[in-house]
Design a protein around this nucleic acid. Structure first.
Length: 377
DNA sequence: AGAATTTGACCTCT
DNA sequence: AGAGGTCAAATTCT
């Protein structure tokens, strides 16, 4: 039994704590869903109060998550491990931003829970660098609208260096591989892949892996982390130039703030039923004017369990160049990724590495935690 | 000159 | 053997 004591905490006691926290979290999620539903029905009329409520809920959930994470991390007890698995499954998010609309799809790839074998594993395996095991991965699809005046490379607030490009089987466009510029100096293992969609050349699929551990990340986190910016004017050949180094503070900060106006994140399909943290992952910010267009999100197969929808919108400034209204919807299924990552199961728990989180975590979800220092300090 | 990108080779996994 | 991912020399850019 002693083995089950952790840091002086009794294993059973811990189990109770975990259960309580989990319950509290779920209740908060339910509340959030209700709120979302309401907002959903009237997106355009989202009030400040609703926003405030949303924010508070996000914080509450984040607190639960943090507490659970702390418990789990500090324990070696079996139960803690189980919970941890749930909580820490690495999620994969797919965000599709399109011309004004950003659709985010989230997927999870938890190795442990479902047994979703290896889609994700495969990634890890492929990664000879081997250190990437466990690295969170999320993908977003960004569609660039011709109208968007974004000229410039996509800037997500971090400095990326391209280290490779590959033609992918079945894909019309090559995939670009980028790693954090500070990798050598600071050992930051964050990487991302950018690939233009076959179906719609205007859509860029960006997959992030790992969190930034570099100073830039720290700065961004502290200040506000920059959300990956989905916009790229670019053409087909090179997926996209994600780089841009900027002083974390200024530009990154702005970026955050500069999320497209009317940025709205709709989470759907993210199951809440159990441990899914999707909610947490997708902060919802709402600001007024967004247009209320939400794109109906298709429910993915996996999303069967999905029940809620969340909206987030960030206040935006104009940093985006435009008038874009980005809508972000998160659904549990992203096929590509999901299939790969989450295919199996049921409980996609989201870990929390979510690009957006970076941007707002500070504002919206202060306590997202998990493994991403970058996003969740 | 130094940094970033390009691109073919190499590695790992299926 | 093929595919995806990374390495690293060569090349280009700033």
């Amino acid at each position: 039994m002693e083995k089950y004591y952790n840091m002086g905490v009794n294993w059973e006691h811990k189990t109770s704590l975990v259960n309580e926290l989990t319950q509290g979290r779920e209740l908060a999620r339910q509340l959030q869903m209700h709120l979302n539903v309401a907002s959903n029905s009237n997106p355009s009329t989202t009030t400040q109060t609703e926003l405030a409520c949303e924010l508070l809920i996000q914080k509450i959930i984040a607190s639960y998550e943090k507490a659970l994470t702390m418990l789990n991390s500090s324990s070696s007890a079996p139960i803690a491990v189980a919970v941890e698995q749930q909580l820490q499954q690495k999620p994969t998010f797919t965000v599709a931003a399109s011309t004004g609309v950003v659709t985010i799809r989230m997927a999870d790839s938890p190795p442990s829970l479902n047994g979703s074998p290896r889609s994700e594993d495969s990634d890890d395996h492929k990664d000879p660098s081997k250190k990437r095991k466990g690295l969170a991965r999320w993908t977003k699809q960004v569609r660039v609208t011709s109208g968007m005046g974004l000229e410039g490379p996509l800037d997500d607030g971090f400095s990326w260096r391209k280290y490779g490009q590959k033609d992918i089987l079945g894909a019309k466009h090559p995939r670009g591989y980028y790693r954090c510029t500070h990798r050598n100096v600071q050992g930051c293992l964050a990487t991302k892949q950018v690939q233009r969609s076959d179906e719609d050349p205007m859509i860029l699929e960006i997959t992030y892996r790992g969190r930034h551990t570099c100073s830039q990340a720290a700065a961004s986190t502290t200040l506000t982390s920059p959300p990956p910016r989905p916009i790229s004017p670019l053409p087909d050949q090179t997926p996209e130039p994600p780089q841009i180094n900027q002083p974390p503070q200024s530009s990154q900060h702005n970026m955050l703030l500069s999320l497209p106006e009317g940025l709205r994140v709709i989470t759907e399909g993210l199951d809440t039923s159990q441990d899914h943290h999707r909610d947490e992952l997708f902060p919802s910010f709402n600001n007024n004017d967004y247009v209320g267009n939400f794109s109906p999100i298709t429910m993915p197969t996996t999303a069967a369990s999905i029940s809620g929808t969340n909206y987030f919108s960030l206040p935006s400034q104009q940093g985006f160049g435009g008038n874009q209204n980005l809508q972000i919807s998160a659904a549990t299924e992203s096929h590509e990724i999901i299939s790969a990552a989450t295919s199996a199961t049921n409980s996609p728990t989201v870990g929390l590495d979510f690009p957006f989180a970076q941007a707002d975590h500070q504002i919206l979800y202060p306590n997202f935690t998990f493994d991403d220092p970058e996003f969740f300090p």
